[in-house]
Every structure is written in structure tokens, then in C-alpha cells.
Design a protein around this nucleic acid. Structure first.
Lengths: 228, 228
DNA sequence: CTCAACATGATTGTCGACATTTTTGTTGTC
DNA sequence: GACAACAAAAATGTCGACAATCATGTTGAG
């Protein structure tokens, strides 16, 4: 879990970014093997860079590295998926508590500006940007709450949520609509903690309910684990 | 935040371990610069190894890496310290909820076995082992709760708590006594959720109150940040 | 024909050397 | 004597080549 957003090894972060985007766009499907040499060629960087990037992505839970075997796009199971969403609801609740008890009015415009970006991306049908900005909204909430820890944790959770969403979503991809975000801003402005908590919880459950978490897809990466 | 305890680059983990221990033993004080070459010489490994280890320790919050400047033992401020403890109380509460709702009796002996180790270390005055085992108890609780996420998060929190404790502790180092852990086991065995939550919260507050978090020690690492 | 042992190819892991950046020390000028 | 520009030293960042490991394909004995 990287905490400072921009202080990490700059050039490697860009590789992360592009791989992340490819996963979000479903170009890279879960289970796909990520060969270092290949990535190095595609991105025109050294293999060491790729290695750094993969290590970061692993700590974000997006890829799984098997020693001497290679890196794969993670395939979170349904139990892990539910775990992530369950925990995320808790964390976002804590964020909201802190935020409402400490936010000053000067911060509200930041939220509205972000919301505007979301609506714009949504309007022009830019799915990738929508997913990204949607997570960014929640992350912004955490940053404004002033807790570096909540921020770091939520950042991790959002990455995983995104991957889970791309794996298990069944309907179209309204990954979490800007409208509900607008409602959250309204509650925050009114310092309505109870309402905000309620809406946030509904919001997150809504996202989870859009997923098909009925059956586990036990695509094992290592056959040794399959025949146990 | 590394999740799988043993699946990380094995040899590098050992370096982590030893640095971690040195920090816990207060051999390495917060703010100390960690030169890669020097560490490589001491541990008789390549500099690349040291680099890996430092990257891990950074993600655990124990060291801070400034690009092109080097790695330093982190110096969490009082606000960050309170943040960590506050969040940790929340996480440990969630752990306890899950644990008590899902634990089976076969797991109890594991807790007791761990407690025995703690008592033994405490009895022979092995401070380092005591600190380590004390954190390990809480981590074991998380593992038994079955949530990989809670476990990973708590693991991170415990690392930071340990560093904070070494920085701000004022009394002797009864970092969190085995006796309170025994109480927790009793509550768990009795499936007494309310009592367990209460005791856990007291326990953690107790640890925090033993610290001197009155004044921030603004030891800046980069002078450029000091004269702003 | 089956299976085990071996050889081959591909991929990851590791290390040492070089380039870059920062810091420290020196010199020279005003 | 103070300060700025420059030079030397040290530490970090980066890269390419080699070694270790794993998967695959082949061969040969039973």
C-alpha cells in the first residue's frame, strides 16, 4: 500500500497506471500472465522498471506474483470480494465521521469540482475515466478527512474494488453513478452525519448488488492448489 | 502492505526482520539514516537486496524514503500517532466481531499456545521478543477472523504502533501485558462479544495512554520543509 | 504403449558496473 | 570576511548481462 500518491518512484508509477487502466478497461482479463520481458518491450522501458511496477501492483492486490513463476492479474474469489466490500463499508463510514466533524467549507468546492469531472466523463461515455474518477471521489473524501491511514487503506480497497467490479459485474457498467455522489455532497454540506452514513452505506451496497457474486470461479493459477 | 506473510521475497524479508528488530530494540532511533551500501556490508548481501527490504519497510511505514536522498527511520508525529491508534481500535473491533461470530473451538488452543510464548518471553525479560509476540497475538486474532483484509491492515497498523511505542513511551516498556491478552481469550471462549469489545478497547487505550503524546517533536528531515 | 529421466527453451531472480543526483569542500572574487 | 561559483566525493538510481529455476519436449528403457 503506497501512501504518498506522487512520491513513489515516478517513472514506475506510469507503468502501474497503464496496466491499471488496461485492467479497468478489461483489456487485461483476470488470470492473464504478465511477462516482464514482454511488458518491458511494450512500454519501452527496462525490465527492472517493470519489476518495480509489478511489485507495486501486487501490494495493491491487482496482480499476484508467484515466485519463479511470474505475475498474473489477480482473480479475487467471491469470498474475498465480499470481504473487501464489507471492510470498505466500515472504512468509508469512518471517513464520513471524520470528514463531517472536521471539514471546513472551503473544501466543498473541491468535491463539486470533482463531481463535475465525473459527470463530464459519464456524459461522453468514457468508461475508463468514469471508473477512475468514481474511485477518485471516494479517495478525495478520505484525503479531506485528514487521516493518512484511512486514505491509504481506502486507496487499497478502491483498487481491489475496481478489479472485483470488472470481474463480476453483470449489468452494464454504471460503476457507481455520479448522482449518488451528489447526494453525499449535499449531506456533507448540511453536516448531516446520519444521512451521509446511511446514503454511503446504501451507495456501496448498491454497487455490490450489481455484481454477480453467486458462484465462485475457481480458476486456479497453480495446478498444485487445484488437486488438493 | 504485504499480505502473505511468507510468500514475499524470502531473503529480503530477513533483512526487513533484522532492521525491524533493531528499531524495536531502539538500536536504530527514529530519524536515523539508513545507507544502502552500509547495510549491504553489515548484512553481507547485495545492495539490491537492501533496496528491496527498504521498499518493504517503507510500505509498512517504518522507514521513509526520499527520492535521491536516502532512507530514514520514520518519525511519526503525534497527530499521526493518534490517527494510527484511533484507526487500530476500529479495526480490532471489527476483528473481534468477526472472530466471535465465526470462531470454532479448535482455534482456542492456538491462542493459548501463543499466550504461553508471551508469558515465557515476558518472564525471562526478553523485551524484543515480548514486543514482537505481543503484536503477534493481535495479528493471530485477525488471521483467525478469516479476513485477509483485516489481517493485512492490522499487520500494517501493528508495525506502526510498535514504532510509535518506541518513540513515545515514557514509562517502562510493558508494551501490552500478557494478562490483558488472557482476558481477551476468556471473553472469546465465552463468546462474550460485548465484553471482548470493551476489554479490547480498554486494552488499546491503555497502551496509548502509556505514551507521551503531548508535544510533537518536529524533527524535520529535509531542511527545505522546515523554512516554509 | 507408459512412464521416468534427461535435455532444451523460456522466464524469472540476482549481481556488479555505470550514470545521475546530491552533498560537501574549495577556491577565487568582491 | 562573506558569498557565489565551481570541483570533488559520496550516495542513490538505472541498466544490461549472467545465473538459477521452472515448464516443455524428447528420448530410451521396461
Amino acid at each position: 500500500m503506497y501512501q504518498s500518491k506522487e512520491a513513489m518512484p515516478g517513472p514506475a508509477a506510469e507503468i502501474c497506471e497503464r496496466i491499471w487502466l488496461s485492467i479497468a478497461e478489461r483489456k487485461l482479463r483476470p488470470g492473464t500472465r504478465l511477462k516482464e520481458e514482454q511488458l518491458a518491450e511494450v512500454f519501452e522501458v527496462s525490465r527492472a522498471r517493470v519489476r518495480q511496477a509489478l511489485a507495486m501492483l501486487e501490494s495493491d492486490g491487482l496482480v499476484t506474483i508467484l515466485p519463479n513463476r511470474g505475475a498474473f492479474v489477480s482473480e479475487p474469489g467471491v469470498d474475498e470480494a465480499r470481504d473487501v466490500f464489507h471492510f470498505r463499508r466500515q472504512v468509508e463510514a469512518r471517513v464520513m465521521e471524520r470528514l463531517i466533524s472536521s471539514i471546513d467549507d472551503a473544501a466543498i468546492p473541491q468535491l463539486e469540482a470533482h463531481l463535475a469531472l465525473e459527470r463530464e466523463a459519464d456524459a461522453r461515455g468514457d468508461t475508463t475515466a468514469t471508473i477512475r474518477l468514481s474511485g477518485g471521489f471516494h479517495l478525495l473524501l478520505a484525503e479531506l478527512s485528514g487521516s493518512t491511514f484511512l486514505t491509504a487503506t481506502l486507496r487499497d480497497l478502491i483498487s481491489r474494488s475496481s478489479l472485483i467490479t470488472t470481474m463480476y459485474r453483470r449489468h452494464s457498467n454504471h460503476n457507481c453513478g455520479p448522482d449518488e455522489h451528489a447526494g453525499l455532497i449535499a449531506r456533507i454540506r448540511a453536516r448531516d452525519l446520519h444521512g451521509a452514513l446511511q446514503l454511503m452505506d446504501d451507495h456501496l451496497r448498491h454497487v455490490e448488488e450489481d455484481l454477480d457474486l453467486t458462484e465462485d470461479v475457481p480458476v486456479v493459477r497453480d495446478l498444485r492448489d487445484a488437486l488438493v
